[in-house]
Design a protein around this nucleic acid. Structure first.
Lengths: 355, 355
DNA sequence: CTGAAAGCGCTAACAC
DNA sequence: GTGTTAGCGCTTTCAG
């Protein structure tokens, strides 16, 4: 059992420096009104004693908890982990979010929340009161969940919404990864390769970004004078099976599309399989672009040309804003939504259309 | 800024149930001496009010923090995340550890610690005093780091060591994934396929498990009457480059090994490349078995026969023991080290030796 | 079996 | 500028 008392507390430092607790606290928190002299003296004691404040006590004292909570969909996340398909969304969130948190002395905690359950409110509410995070990051498909947003609003906890434009006016820091622009990037790449029949496998409707990607596809198709016919659009559910169905439907069309954009890697893999089963060569007979650029995109045959989603960077941005916001660093009110653009990584699955 | 006061506290529940704070606390903590009647009444109030205790306050009160800290190597972990090679060690730790924590009302927090730096002690020490975790999980290559172990001992924080036999007597709960047995499994599989020249690419020396795998290889080779010659053993560093060097060395030997076991997937991929560059067919001319079975093992051509490391299960086990130990559930003193065995997943990279 | 008191380490609010 | 005083919400004593 961890001992009840802490080794070196603020009291020890105060005594050692010959000042009051409050002064030490002030130094720790970088409060303006401290004489440089005092500051140095206290800091010296802190360093000598190796004092580190207890975040539990800090929270109890009424200030920050130094915890940022990252909410992810339980079912999907656990499935991704169990299936071991190489989805590294969580890793990228940690890479960006956790390291940024560390820079500011914060910790990032992952919390899995079940949406399907109507306990969302109870479940998330419990986590919030137990942890009392200083900020919350919500990820798709939760980023626009009104229940969650309302709860956060009610508790006055700052939150960032990844994959949301925040157009609903439900508050929070809105960040997107430029889904529409990314889709356009994919279409442009294919159009420039001479493709005219460019199919699109959309993501499920409960992800707002699914719609944006479709929008981008439509817009860019139009820009190139191409017909974004309904028959060129199928919807998947981000799974291999869903991708298989969608790819089959798309490739059964006449005229057959010469290129397909899949809204995530899993569905792209499925498309690869379907093409192969149909005797179609990729990229000879069919060019393929996917979204996400998870690790396996490099390992398929051929490797996948893919839209890289800047998950780490977006998470880092979210953390940064959350922390500076609640610190009152209202430097420049950032325009919403914040847009972190992805990029197109060209690999082996795309080639010039046969003429 | 999060409000200073909590919505519903233990006080409210006490008043609502018409009992003292203490009684509520007792009910919450399942302390023996409470009359069933009382218990029911209090529980009813808790439920009605939706009371959830603040973990910060719980910790302040002198009890648990409900936090388990998982220590990972900073450099390696960040590199894995940035390289996006599909290493899902952290994900599997979370899958097993976090879900098990959740079952007990605990949270798992990942902490990246830099070993190379001699600040280990300061760095980890700071995390420990800031967070005051109820338990710590140490992962390779830290599991046997005497500095870390001493620190944990000194602070009397229960800890679990993944990938350690605990033979050093430095305390803690020792868990291994049966590295020796797994290596034997790999050798046996190959021997049964008729291979006699079975090369081994070991992991770096700072990972204890590297040695165990070599031991397993040696032992099983002997068992099958095969010569574990020094020329059949090369050391890599778990990277692709290191694997490349090792594979080249191995495949330059005369007689050339007909099978190779690589201590992780990255080095196996490298071996695949080297073989291909040498015009060797896998598994026709060379059989290959790897360790880890990360997601990409299924995606190479051919797919990799691999040892699956039960990371999730091991992490779950560690959490379980940590929690029950510090709860004083000294039911049956588990024999150390705890051994969670992996399994061999046979895929396309192994075949019968040419006779 | 239950209650009352004291205190955990820290910070906000107010004095000086 | 700095010190003093009250808590924060909970649990551990210790009484009854």
């Amino acid at each position: 059992m961890a001992q009840r008392k802490q080794a070196v507390t603020i009291k020890h430092v105060a005594r050692d420096a010959g000042v009051s607790l409050q002064t030490v606290s002030r130094v720790m928190n970088n409060v303006p009104n401290v004489s440089p002299e005092m500051k140095r003296r206290v800091q010296a004691s802190i360093d000598r004693l190796g004092y580190v404040p207890s975040i539990a006590a800090q929270r109890m004292g009424g200030s920050r908890s130094y915890i940022i909570l990252a909410i992810n969909d339980r079912e999907r996340t656990i499935a991704d982990w169990q299936l071991r398909q190489g989805t590294d969304w969580v890793d990228q969130m940690l890479l960006g979010g956790m390291t940024k948190c560390a820079e500011h002395g914060y910790r990032m905690l992952i919390e899995l929340v079940d949406t399907h359950n109507d306990h969302v409110e109870r479940e998330l509410g419990a986590a919030l009161t137990a942890l009392q995070p200083d900020g919350v990051i919500i990820t798709p498909p939760h980023s626009d969940n009104p229940q969650i947003l309302a709860l956060l609003q009610a508790r006055a906890i700052p939150f960032a919404r990844i994959g949301s434009t925040g157009a609903d006016g439900l508050g929070g820091i809105a960040l997107t990864m430029d889904d529409e622009g990314s889709a356009r990037l994919a279409v442009r790449h294919l159009a420039e390769l001479g493709h005219r029949q460019i199919g699109f496998i959309a993501g499920p409707a409960d992800y707002q970004l699914s719609g944006w990607r479709v929008d981008g596809w439509r817009a860019e198709m139009a820009l190139h004078g191409l017909d974004a016919a309904d028959s060129l659009l199928e919807t998947g559910d981000f799974t291999f099976e869903g991708g298989t169905r969608a790819a089959r439907a798309l490739l059964a069309c006449e005229p057959r599309p010469t290129a397909i954009i899949a809204s995530n890697d899993q569905m792209a893999f499925a498309t690869l399989e379907v093409a192969s089963a149909l005797g179609l060569d990729v990229p000879g007979d069919l060019s393929l672009v996917s979204f996400d650029n998870t690790p396996m995109a490099r390992f398929t045959r051929p490797s996948l040309t893919a839209i890289d989603q800047p998950v780490a960077e977006t998470a880092a941005r979210a953390v940064d804003l959350l922390i500076s916001q609640q610190r009152g660093d209202d430097a420049d009110p950032v325009p919403m939504p914040i847009n972190v653009s992805g990029s197109l990584v060209v690999r082996g699955s795309t080639a010039a259309a046969k003429s």
